[in-house]
């Protein structure tokens, strides 16, 4: 039994390894003296990836799609800005505080929405995203109305000023690593199994003693924690936040990124976040063109690669190396889009 468990642990650690290697390589990028524009894009991508890891727990494991996820990022960002302005609370304390704020908001939205079932939840999260943008826009001086809020305040780590672009980049890579490991730990825990059971069959899950409603709300709250942290990093990176950054379009983008990358694979959020950030740059597209390209990508991914891009690549590699399509293991099975 004990050896079994050790073998299991080894097996699941092995699934984490590729992400860690990729992230280590990504951390080496500053050695090649990239342009500031590249670093900025990469930082934005990394900040999204953190939220995407939360979304992968929610969508990939539990099978619930949130179409208002940017709002949870926004709660974190505004929490950070308001805490700094009104209480002089800095970056490091803002992280847990904003994570808590986003988690509480997720719970407030989740309790009524998740009780009514799948499709309603998608609509409720979307409506919540819109509502938050309206509230922020009409919040007067407190939220800075449509102009938003500035967030000054340095970010220091062991006395070093992290607002330098390269340092901030490295810090975001570290946060992405933590997010990836956290999401991996959830997937490989009994909690992750419980969430997958709910994704697969709620009725059966309930008959086996799983409190489906509570765990769905829990998964949304967990995804809120990731979103809140992502929001703090965003606010301190941009130095200015406004309501439109957290409305429906950014939410749809987040959902799109996680689907393109593959929600059930540990590499998926990373791939989706990077791809969507850099694709318009690589293809030299204007914003309207890039929206069209994303739309086409999403349709293509849903139709051709149900496990997302990475799932498709993994499947192709396996087929190439073993000569036959192998039975997929759990965390890379078809990410059917059922919502």
């Amino acid at each position: 039994m004990k050896e079994d468990r050790r073998a299991d642990l080894f097996e699941s650690l092995r699934s984490l390894l590729p992400v860690l290697v990729i992230l280590a390589l990504i951390a080496l990028v500053p050695l090649f003296s990239p342009s500031n524009r590249f670093l900025s894009l990469a930082i934005s991508a990394g900040i999204n990836v953190i939220a995407l890891y939360g979304l992968s727990v929610l969508f990939g494991q539990t099978g619930i799609l949130s179409m208002g996820h940017a709002a949870l990022v926004g709660v974190g960002a505004y929490a950070a800005a308001i805490l700094a302005r009104d209480f002089g609370i800095g970056f490091w304390l803002a992280l847990p505080a904003a994570a808590l704020a986003s988690a509480v908001f997720a719970m407030i939205v989740g309790i009524p929405s998740l009780r009514v079932g799948g499709h309603h939840f998608v609509i409720m999260t979307f409506a919540f995203g819109q509502l938050l943008a309206i509230v922020l826009t009409n919040g007067g001086d407190y939220t800075g109305a449509a102009t938003g809020l500035d967030i000054a305040g340095p970010v220091t780590l062991f006395g070093a000023d992290m607002t330098d672009l390269t340092r901030y980049y490295l810090m975001v890579v570290a946060f992405v690593t933590v997010a990836a490991v956290a999401s991996w730990a959830i997937i490989h825990s009994s909690y992750g199994r419980t969430l997958r059971a709910i994704r697969e069959n709620e009725k059966l899950a309930a008959s086996l003693g799983i409190n489906v409603g509570r765990h769905k709300i829990g998964a949304f709250v967990v995804s809120g924690i990731f979103a809140g942290i992502s929001g703090v990093l965003l606010a301190y990176f941009l130095g200015h936040i406004s309501p439109s950054q957290f409305s429906s379009f950014p939410s749809i983008y987040l959902a799109l990124m996680v689907m393109i990358g593959g929600a059930r694979l540990i590499e998926g959020p990373l791939a989706g976040g990077i791809l969507v950030a850099f694709l318009p740059e690589v293809l030299n597209l204007d914003p309207v063109q890039s929206r069209i390209v994303y739309g086409v990508c999403l349709i293509a991914v849903i139709m051709l690669l149900p496990d997302g891009l990475i799932g498709g690549i993994v499947r192709a590699l396996r087929a190439a190396f073993s000569g036959k399509p192998k039975q997929e293991t759990e965390d890379c099975d078809a990410a059917e889009v059922r919502q």
Binding site: R193, E200, N201, A205, L208, G209
Partner: peptide
């Protein structure tokens, strides 16, 4: 019915974790 997308062993594992 069972959890169709999950492994047979994982199915039973899940079922035993909430007893």
């Amino acid at each position: 019915m069972a959890f169709a997308g999950l492994g047979v062993l994982e199915n039973v594992q899940i079922a035993g974790e909430h007893a």
